[in-house]
Design a protein around this nucleic acid. Structure first.
Lengths: 132, 132
DNA sequence: CCTTGCGCTTCCAGTCGCAGGAACCCTTAT
DNA sequence: ATAAGGGTTCCTGCGACTGGAAGCGCAAGG
């Protein structure tokens, strides 16, 4: 199967698939004409990576997950450790963003938003109404 | 004041301050010896940018905010529009991350995490237990 | 006077995860 | 024969820095 078909079936752009091959994440066979040739199994791995990426795993983490994916002898604890770490990161990010949102929402709500130059948002950013 | 002092007072690494000058965000005077020379006002602007960046504004948005910051005749509506747009982006990001977290938490919670090879996380990523 | 050491300067390369585009080859249909 | 629509490689650029090399400025100590 050519790269275009693999791209459609995996949900990854062909460009991205070539990039993954470039960095040694997934290698493909080559047909006689030099075209990359993907098996069903290759497509499974591509979808696996697509899913993991969309779940916020970095490419390096995907590399680890892929090797665990292919390892019939893996311990689920190994996988769980990676996923739990990532989960923690995501939760921290949510907390940070929520604080950010509250702060910004406060500024926006206190800005009358008219033609006058007084602006609580600017004041907030310049430190006149916010802590240091 | 030298860049190191400005860095300490603004909370930005010197490297970043030079970078900002490089992209034309903030320019500094030069002392006779070629060193950058920062005024208190410069430091205020640097802190302003530092705050705005930490609130999730892009450097380009900071550029807009800076010009509004320096403009005594600005309308608060202009600032509010930028901030409100950014607020929307942040809220969307929180929603996305929350979905992500729930999905990942579900996988992690269903993984026994022992030495056996069966792993719901891998299965989930490979599509065996998740929708397509 | 000389050295040491820190801070400053510039410039170049690398990061992450691709996307865009050029220049070219392969295959199929008309 | 030609055109369209694949595929290939390689190079560049994005955003927002960060690290490092090579070289100056300057104050203090021996």
């Amino acid at each position: 199967m050519n790269i275009g078909t693999a791209a459609r079936q995996s949900g990854l752009p062909a460009k991205t698939i070539r990039y993954y091959e470039d960095i040694g994440l997934l290698k493909a066979d080559r047909a006689a004409n030099g075209y990359r040739d993907y098996s069903k199994d290759d497509v499974h791995r591509l979808r696996f990576v697509q899913r993991a990426r969309s779940l916020g795993f970095s490419v390096e983490e995907c590399r680890q997950l892929l090797s665990l994916y292919s390892d019939r002898q893996r311990a689920s604890a190994d996988v769980k450790a990676i996923a739990a770490e990532k989960l923690g990161q995501i939760e921290r990010k949510i907390v940070d963003l929520t604080e950010l949102r509250d702060l910004l929402a406060h500024l926006v709500n206190n800005c009358h938003g008219d033609a006058r130059p007084e602006c609580p948002i600017i004041d907030g950013l310049s430190g006149r109404t916010m802590g240091q």
